[in-house]
Design a protein around this nucleic acid. Structure first.
Lengths: 323, 323
DNA sequence: TGTAGTCGTTCAAATAATTTGAATGATGAT
DNA sequence: ATCATCATTCAAATTATTTGAACGACTACA
């Protein structure tokens, strides 16, 4: 008999069912087994049975039965407190699942080119979560925003790490199975600090002259696709930094030269902290958004694509001008 | 009849029982209802019935049955991910309840770095269960021992999958809420098979020379934390293997070169099966143990921390020398 | 102290839920 | 086209839970 009970109990891996937790909570709230039975419309022996099942499975006494009315043990009290929290978690999970079933994605991974205005991106995330449905709930989709550089933006999409890429190179059409939509252009200017030697060289700057000075480059964030190097001359010394902001800062300090998005350095140029130098060619980069066309689209991706279709939003992303 | 069904379903407030979640996870892992039934030792119709019960209760389709093998819907996938997390929470609550009752945890999950001596770990488990209380019973805590590689050891602790991490990188201090205690160092040696080309190259080996030969690396077991790559030179060909033993074996076969714990290959070197080569730098990795500091500690974790404080035990873990 | 009311448990019968075994239609590979 | 394997249907078999009745124990009150 004892062996039989032991075997049955040890095979019950997960005794903490929602019903079991609810039962403990109801007994506590009603004040006794008998009162709880009345509340639940059951007979007291049903509660006795269920509590015993749970106690045996946990190998823990949850109620002290020395007095007439059963009293929660410290362990029982712990289960009550923690169990209530679990019930809330379960409700939340069930709610999430239902909402995902209704069209929302569980998560949406967005890879944004580092040249896109970060402020605008966060505005979009804010607006996304500001949405309210009929139940006054925000979208359940967890947004995972990541920043990429150069071909890292494409790679994130192709590798499946991202569901939406904002700021892929529009001239770098790579693969089928992907939808692409033009976003706009970013004009670049070649700039140096006022105290940099090239600041005093006659324009347009000769490539041979540029080559004699260190360039500042942002490290491509791509891990697998071939790294892309832009506007670097063969044999040129390069200072590599991880972010666009650091590239701007390095050039402000005169550590090197290179092209930067005009909109991002306009204020520095007007304030005389940077000097624009003509190189005899206009540098303009064309950007697009891209997403995988296979499968059904969720409501979250739909929402983002709709926002990104707005010319004002596009300009804000490209130029940092408030939308 | 239809009213009857509807009434029954709508009264099922908490369909997310642990068994239901486990069932979804098992079906996903096994790849199909039929395979999962085989794993669980049940008939397929039992699974069909249970999944239907859950789907009806949630009013959500969890599987797409359009093809021969049922495929998780996005909502089903969401339930799988969130449900797994809930199971961990339930385990944690049950463990805490047991600890409040008796002082012993319900279970103790230990993530051990693959470089820790497996024999010593099992000696410790043996010693743990050899304990006897006044009733001559062993500790009731179920030990769950898992092996991790590189940042996977940290991740197991941070994700809640492990209560104790043995062999985290001591130089990789990651987060608060975690207690860390130094364990010791493991010296590495660069070795190749006697018939490997590098065996005859003059020492110390030049990095450029090393780069021309395939390296053998262990795949990081971390899923979420950034993967860690150690001692690989840029552009080097890499053979990736899942375990340390396979790395040793691959290098014994001359499939590649790389660093290995000195203590683990000492016998191979002395027997001439591997040749140690100086590279001009000493490779030493520093390890620690880590556990979450929140909440009250149970007797099982206390016991393990006490054992791991012993210098003899530490040396045995790090070097495979009997404690 | 005695009495009444109410508590939680035991136990076997009744009821409900889950599992099984067999048959079936459908998919996917060859 | 054939075969293997998938998931489902359905009713019987099995298991789990609930019920109703009886009982011992406690608590409050006269």
């Amino acid at each position: 008999m004892n062996d039989y009970i032991s075997t049955t109990v040890s095979e019950r891996d997960h005794p903490l069912t929602p019903e079991a937790i609810r039962l403990i909570a109801t007994i506590d709230e009603a004040g006794s087994f008998a009162a709880a039975a009345r509340v639940l419309g059951k007979v007291p022996s049903a509660l006795s049975y269920s509590v015993r099942q749970l106690e045996d499975a946990l190998d823990v006494l949850l109620f002290d039965r020395a007095s007439r009315t059963a009293v929660l043990t410290p362990a029982g009290r712990e289960l009550l407190v923690e169990g209530r929290r679990l019930l809330l978690e379960m409700d939340a999970v069930a709610s999430r699942v239902k909402r995902v079933a209704s069209g929302w994605e569980g998560q949406l991974a967005i890879a944004a080119n580092a040249l896109m205005c970060p402020h605008t991106l966060l505005d979009l995330v804010d607006a996304f979560y500001a949405q309210r449905d009929t139940a006054r709930l925000p979208p359940p989709t967890r947004i995972r925003l990541r920043q990429e550089v150069l071909s890292g933006t494409w790679e994130a999409l192709l590798s499946g790490a991202a569901d939406l890429a904002i700021g892929v190179d529009a001239d770098d059409t790579r693969v089928s199975g992907v939808q692409v939509e033009a976003l706009g252009d970013i004009p670049f200017v070649f700039v140096v600090a006022p105290h940099h030697p090239l600041a005093r060289v006659a324009e347009p700057l000769d490539p041979a002259m540029i080559r004699m000075h260190r360039a500042v480059a942002i490290a491509d964030s791509a891990m697998k696709l071939s790294p892309v190097s832009r506007n670097l001359l063969p044999g040129q010394d390069v200072l590599t930094v991880p972010t666009l902001d650091m590239k701007i800062d390095a050039q402000l300090r005169g550590l090197g030269c290179g092209f930067l998005p005009e909109a991002r350095v306009r204020a520095h140029i007007e304030a005389g902290r940077l000097v624009a130098k003509a190189t005899g060619e206009d540098k303009v980069a064309r950007f697009a958004i891209a997403w995988r066309s296979a499968g059904q689209r969720g409501r979250a991706l739909d929402w983002w694509l709709q926002q990104l279709a707005s010319p004002r939003t596009r300009r804000a992303l490209l130029e940092g001008v408030p939308a």
